[in-house]
Nucleic acid binder design. Sequence first.
DNA 1: AAAAAATTTGCGGCATGTTGCAAGCTTTTC
DNA 2: GAAAAGCTTGCAACATGCCGCAAATTTTTT
Lengths: 249, 249
Amino acid sequence: MLKRERQAYILHQVNIHNKVLSTDLSVHINVSDDTIRRDLQELADAGKLIKVHGGALSPSFHHGNHAAKDVYSYTQKRIIAQKAVSLIENGMFVLTGGGTTIIEMAKILPAQLQATFISGSIPAIYEYLNHPNIEVIAIGDKISKNSKITIGHEAMTRIRQLKTDLCFLGINAINLENGVSDNDWEVVQIKRAMIEASKKLVCLTIAEKINSQQPLQVCELKKIDILITELPPTDPLLQPYVEAGIRVL
Amino acid sequence: MLKRERQAYILHQVNIHNKVLSTDLSVHINVSDDTIRRDLQELADAGKLIKVHGGALSPSFHHGNHAAKDVYSYTQKRIIAQKAVSLIENGMFVLTGGGTTIIEMAKILPAQLQATFISGSIPAIYEYLNHPNIEVIAIGDKISKNSKITIGHEAMTRIRQLKTDLCFLGINAINLENGVSDNDWEVVQIKRAMIEASKKLVCLTIAEKINSQQPLQVCELKKIDILITELPPTDPLLQPYVEAGIRVL
DNA sequence: AAAAAATTTGCGGCATGTTGCAAGCTTTTC
DNA sequence: GAAAAGCTTGCAACATGCCGCAAATTTTTT
């Protein structure tokens, strides 16, 4: 990859996400941390972005302290994303939903990974497209402005025709009695279809949402194969889920 | 191989892949690195590409970077986009393709406009989603990495079920004898389907591409209802198209 | 069609650019 | 305050770029 090309890519990432982490970029583009750091330095000198410890920010985010802090507030989701990525193997078909955690995962997919990703989430698709070896399939239909995923009958029909190896779902609430729940009727329909369309279901969530509930049930607890949070699997908060037979990462 | 021929080939490669490596070219064409470098230098001097260490990039790469310098056709595309937007009325169903000109249009859609946009272009959809009053429908299928639009049978089928008010297509080549042409087989298929799926066809292109031709025909000239370039409709270059019965803006 | 002129090409040598690595230092996290 | 992650600097290895020149090729002239 050419230097300019790489820098254009970095800039693109910064402009889309308002922030980037050096490590993400180096894993992604498959070059050393040093190179990324030098690129960031050059781009910063040119005023194209603002360099901070551990990464860089979009120049439009001039809120100083707040912004710098923002880089690190994403550590939780990055931890989750890294655990999630480790589950994906070459040649797999992977169905994913939307949400910030999924996007984080999309950002750190290793460059060598060869797999097919299927999604109705526009931001997720956008990320997948940046990867050299990933095939991307979009699920079409009307798009929900809120969640930026495709919803509706057509999307449901397409999803029902699939049987993928893995399904990654970012979830909004989970507890022992009612399993996974959410608050958007149409999104819940889609999530239900996605769960049925995959051999394995992987749920991603920050620990904050563990033991919470929303009005609409997405699925029962026993449907979940793997649960990923930023906590270590041994954390007491997660023990009830381990005992319920879920593999917790 | 003649110099002109070689340079034409290089340019072609750049336009298709957005980048070339000097070494790739020298191996492929079987000439020395120096020759390639000199070719790139000449083409760069003529503004046909951007020379970088190790190869060259398409001028379109420098939209953001050289915004102030205004090298590429950014301003032109902006003019085109503004003319195009004026055609859209409240309540319309609009089918759009991909490409930088379409993205420009998406960016300047007036906030009050209420319409439904249907597209298979991920970047275009991304832009439409930012608008408050626009409904967005995505056409799903496998995504072409090059053009970032959905391609394939499923996409074709969905498009064929439509009959929209307008279809906006960014085009790569147009001339009097062969109409609109392009160089990507799958993209051409999609464009053909889109043309049939709309009551009116609006073609957008920078004047540079007027009277040029690519290997694959998209549609005949008479299919075009409206042609938009950055030039005034009275420009001599456009007169043959006016005489052919096309409304030129 | 041959000769002359102009252009183009490949090569060697040298300058510069790019990248990864190691050692030592600073910041952040726990 | 110790461990981990990130930063800085200098450096070596390698790739790429540039210059001048002579050989090869194309174009023009006779």
